[in-house]
Design a protein around this nucleic acid. Structure first.
Length: 278
DNA sequence: CCCCAGTCCTGCGGGC
DNA sequence: TGCCCGCAGGACTGGG
């Protein structure tokens, strides 16, 4: 499930398309799978993308963005199983869109999505600001200063783990990295935000930065039941370094005494060490 | 404000 | 062996 480190890895993997032009864009529909959600429409998207120059490849939280000449932005939102690829996709069946790029050598940028929960959107500047502006997507979680993290969350009575998943509060954290960061910070997931001390907010900000940096270095997490791959269809390797996520019943890697426990918080599986994160 | 249930979707694995 | 069901959850919506 692409979260910040996986999406950052996708972004880096396709960064070389900057400077190329989109010769042709095709949204692919198949009778056997539900069509991808495309904004504003497949035909308008295909028309508006034709000939557009890619100025930059960016990331906003869990989205990959192609900034285009003229101010349009093409937004890839992978959600659970979406991939942005420069090579052949895992299956032909779930290929959702193809951008043929001009420039030196052949290049194709593909959007593949097994479950089809992902989206592909083309926004003008005003639309982009309205839908993905700072009031909708909070500051990036990677390297977020402790003071910013605290200011945005400390009035809330919500469980800290639930709050970390709120993309309006901070962008990029999903279920895996929320669990991992809270374990590193030695904070119980169910702690209300308003109960955290300044020292605990500092610990959490540092843990977020550490875990996200580490995960980016390992090119994200490819879980057994997941489909995440980088732009070259290769697995990430951070799953081997998870401390608690999907490790219920295993010894806590920190204290070695207690066992990692799975609970449900905000309708999401949550993993923590009851001793370290008391 | 906050919480919860439901929605989208498909592959996989547990249980019988 | 085969089938069914539940689970996985990011983002969003609607109701309480």
């Amino acid at each position: 499930m692409p979260e910040l480190p996986e999406v950052e890895t996708m972004r880096r993997g396709i960064a070389s398309v900057a400077g190329r032009r989109i010769e042709r864009a095709a949204v692919i529909r198949r009778a056997s799978v539900r069509p991808l959600t495309v904004w504003p429409s497949a035909s308008a998207l295909q028309r508006r993308l034709r000939g557009a120059r890619i100025e930059a490849v960016e990331r906003l939280g869990k989205r990959v963005i192609l900034a285009l000449e003229g101010g349009d932005r093409l937004v890839f939102e992978p959600r659970m199983t979406g991939l942005v690829l420069l090579t052949d996709p895992p299956t032909a069946k779930h290929l959702r869109a193809r951008l043929t790029l001009s420039g030196k050598g052949k290049a194709e940028l593909l959007f593949w999505d097994r479950r089809g929960l992902g989206t592909l959107s083309l926004y003008g500047p005003d639309e982009f600001a309205e839908r993905l502006g700072p009031d909708r997507i909070g500051p990036d979680a990677w390297g977020i200063p402790a003071s910013v993290l605290r200011d945005r969350l400390d009035a809330s009575r919500r469980a800290v783990k639930v709050a970390l998943l709120d993309q309006r509060a901070l962008a990029g954290v999903g279920n895996i990295y929320a669990c991992e960061a809270l374990h590193v910070a030695r904070l119980a997931p169910e702690r209300p935000c308003c109960s955290l001390t300044r020292a605990e907010w500092r610990r959490l900000a540092k843990a977020l930065d550490g875990v996200l940096s580490e995960a980016v270095r390992y090119e994200g997490s490819t879980l057994g039941d997941g489909t995440y791959r980088n732009a070259l269809n290769q697995d990430g390797s951070y799953q081997a370094h998870h401390r608690v996520y999907a490790r219920a019943g295993e010894d806590c890697p920190r204290c070695g005494d207690a066992v990692v426990v799975r609970t449900v918080l905000g309708q999401r599986a949550t993993f923590a060490c009851p001793r370290c994160q008391g």
